[in-house]
């Protein structure tokens, strides 16, 4: 996986800390897109009640990230800064789903796109290709 993120946080006070925030947000976003999902059954029982079934992103699920900036100053505060805490988590899930749908060639991919979901999507692409031939 290759990951590039460009953010505009206006003036940055401490880039090391800001980049750390971006990394963490992306990881949570990738988690939502590929791994995480709380599941209740039809009787309202939570069936993902531990890390055995709720899949938390681990180090080997993620790549290193390329993070960089563009800067436009925020005119509505004295420092010209913008918030950065949630940024990564906002843009990441949909970028992942857009990439997977691009790879499989159709739009029918749910979140989280688990191995089983991706397998099903690949099966569907094969069927669609066959139908088109």
């Amino acid at each position: 996986m290759k990951w590039t993120a460009i953010d505009d946080f206006g003036i940055v006070i401490n880039p090391m800390i800001v980049e750390g925030q971006v990394h963490g947000g992306i990881a949570q976003g990738v988690g939502q897109a590929l791994l995480e999902g709380a599941v209740y059954d039809k009787h309202g029982q939570l069936v993902t009640g531990s890390y055995m079934d709720y899949c938390m992103p681990r180090a080997d699920n993620l790549p290193s990230f390329n993070v960089d900036y563009v800067v436009t100053k925020c005119p509505s505060n004295p420092l010209g800064i913008k918030g950065c805490g949630e940024a990564g988590a906002i843009a990441a899930p949909v970028a992942v789903v857009n990439a997977i749908t691009n790879a499989v060639g159709h739009e029918d991919v749910p979140m989280p796109a688990t191995p089983q979901a991706v397998w099903a999507a690949v099966q569907k692409s094969a069927k669609l290709r066959k139908a088109a031939e």
């Binding site: 918030g83 949630e86 940024a87 949909v94 992942v96 499989v104």
Partner: peptide
């Protein structure tokens, strides 16, 4: 596959 996303945040 490649996926893009552009975001705006009210922070």
């Amino acid at each position: 596959g490649i996926g893009l996303s552009s975001y705006i945040e009210a922070c």
